[in-house]
Design a protein around this nucleic acid. Sequence first.
DNA 1: GTTCCGATTTTCT
DNA 2: GAAAATCGGAACA
Length: 202
Amino acid sequence: MARFSRLFFRRYTPTVARELLGAILVRVLDGTTLSGRIVETEAYRGSDDPASHAYRGMTKRTEVMFGEPGKAYVYFTYGNHYCLNVTSERKGEAGATLIRALAPLEGLEEMQRRRGVENVRDVANGPGKLTKAMGIDGSLNGEDLVTSKRLYLVRGERPSSVGVSTRIGLSVAKATEWRFFVDGDEFVSHYRTHNYRKRAAP
DNA sequence: GTTCCGATTTTCT
DNA sequence: GAAAATCGGAACA
C-alpha cells in the first residue's frame, strides 16, 4: 500500500485532482479502519480562481491552502457540513483538491451507522457525506496526509475513463471545468445532472 | 424520476 | 449583514 510522495502534491492542482481519482482514502478511527476509493474531485487554486476560498489572499481559514502540499484542508460550511480537501502547489502558492465522493471499501457498516443510511450508494456520494461517514472534522485541518496514521491516501488503480465538468454549487467561475470523476461510476454525486461534458484522456 | 426550499453557523466584508 | 465548494425532505410528475 504505497502512499503518495510530497512531490505528487507539489504540482498544478487540476492535474493533482485528476490523478487522485482511483486513490484510496483511509481513516483510522478508534482502531477501526474506514476506507474508500476516490471517484470524484474538484480543483481550487488561488488568485486566478474566483471560486476559491484563497482568491482574496490568505486568511485564518485558508492558511493551509498556502502551506506545504499534501495536507488536509478541512472547512465547515452551510452551518452543517465539513468538507475535506488535499493541498497542492508549492509552498506559498494556494491550491487544494476537494474530495467529493467515495466508493466505500473497508468499514462499510461503521460508515452506514455514522451516516444513518442503509443504501451503500448514499454513504459517501457527496463532500459533506463522506466526512460524516469517516468522522472527519475541523480537528483534522492541517493533518499531513503524507505521514499521518489517522488520515492518509494510498495509490490505487487509475480509472480507464475520466469525465470532466464544471464545478458544483458555485456562483462564480461557473465555466471552469475543474471537476473530475470516474466515468460511469455509481458513487459519483449528481450522477444524473452533472455528469455531462467531454471526457479527458486517461 | 426532478425541482424547490429551509436549516444552521462560520467566515469575511 | 450576507453568502456559503451542502444535504435531505417535500412536492410534483
